[in-house]
Design a protein around this nucleic acid. Structure first.
Length: 352
DNA sequence: AAACTAATAT
DNA sequence: TATATTAGTT
């Protein structure tokens, strides 16, 4: 795979030369052929991500047919289980038939392939193109093979490390903001975020870091977040919201403690000093400028659109008509996955 | 036993 | 550094 990728990239890079410098006949041949931008992105395989992840095809080459079938079985059953679980809390999640994800963000840890696109302008073009063509497909993709611990494959194969993109983080913050940072616990966050492949551990780890960040922030009131906190800095501070609807606690797994939606956005600040960074200037209180969206009534179970989380949150659009919005778009973009380095760099335009 | 948090490891 | 993993608690 890597080979192919490299080759195409090579050709792409030299395409111009060929056209201009070589035989015209060559140019003729190239007419009608896909332009570099049309070519399959390096990070994309021929196999649909969902499928690939379902069969754990991505990561390593070594995989026996037996493994695959076993994995598919477990994965399938797991998905069913998840579906049920999620549907009980009114989340739309995964279409078995089409294998397409709808509401949930699919975390796509693009591990290995990541190496390819770091650098370059080429990658940028590619990135843009992707956004265009896939906007409706899936905004965030991260493959992650396993959805559940009970699966042998899931346990065995280690998944690539999760990269908390601004989109993911935003969702995280939303959930945390709604539940109140005081009471949130990883499991609940994980469930409400409704991101396929996201594990409790992933969330726990991030939560730990997030709490640290908040604590740190509390101390220094007027400080803007240092450059080190890019991700966090770009997100409004959650206002702990005393929301303890149900208790939650861990009680065993299922608990339907939240059938609820996360209705509104955070609250206004009680005190706290604002330390919002820049994008939005207003302290936390402000972000809400946006409206309040739907109200909470837990009973609102419309099946149509997604997760309530989506509902609010995007401040930029101003009104969130909850009927339907460009949810997908909101979570769109960016690549994730390359753990090689440089992750952050929250684009300026990064609107969250 | 499951899940949380803090500490530690990669 | 960011995220994962472990350990000690609840």
């Amino acid at each position: 795979m890597g080979e192919e990728v490299k080759m195409s990239e090579y050709e792409i890079n030299n395409g111009e030369d060929n056209i201009n410098g070589d035989d015209e006949r060559v140019a003729v041949w190239e007419i009608g052929l896909p332009t570099p931008d049309d070519l399959t992105p390096l990070s994309q395989t021929l196999i649909p991500p969902e499928l690939a992840s379902a069969f754990s095809i991505f990561p390593e080459p070594h995989r026996t047919p037996l493994d695959v079938s076993r994995a598919s079985q477990t994965t399938l059953s797991n998905l069913r289980g998840q579906l049920n679980a999620l549907s009980s809390i009114n989340f739309k999640s995964f279409n078995e038939t089409t294998g397409q994800t709808h509401d949930p963000i699919v975390v796509d840890l693009d591990d290995k392939t990541g190496a390819v696109d770091r650098d370059g302008s080429g990658s940028e073009a590619r990135k843009l193109r992707r956004v265009d063509s896939e906007e409706e497909d899936s905004a965030l993709r991260a493959e992650n093979s396993a959805e559940d611990p009970s699966s042998a494959a899931a346990r065995t194969l280690k998944r690539p490390r999760l990269v908390w993109t601004p989109q993911l983080h935003k969702r995280f913050v939303d959930v945390v903001g709604h539940l109140g940072i005081k009471n949130v616990v990883p499991k609940t966050i994980m469930q409400l975020m409704n991101v396929e492949g996201l594990t409790r551990e992933n969330v726990a780890s991030h939560l730990q870091k997030y709490r640290l960040y908040l604590k740190r922030m509390q101390g220094l009131s007027s400080e803007g977040p240092s450059a080190s906190d890019q991700l966090f800095a770009s997100t409004p501070l959650p206002q702990s919201f005393p929301e303890s609807s149900g208790g939650g606690g861990g009680g065993g797994g299922g608990n339907g403690n939240f059938g609820i939606p996360i209705p509104m956005p955070y609250h206004h600040p009680t005190t706290a000093g604002g330390m919002m960074p820049m994008p939005v200037y207003g302290h936390m209180g402000m972000q809400m400028g946006n409206n309040n969206c739907h109200n909470n009534n837990s009973s609102d179970n419309h099946q149509h659109h997604q997760v309530s989380i989506n509902g609010h949150q995007n401040g930029y659009n101003g009104n969130v008509a909850h009927g339907h919005m460009l949810q997908q778009r909101d979570w769109n973009g960016n690549h994730y996955g390359s753990y090689t380095h440089h992750p952050h760099q929250v684009a300026p335009n990064d609107n969250m």
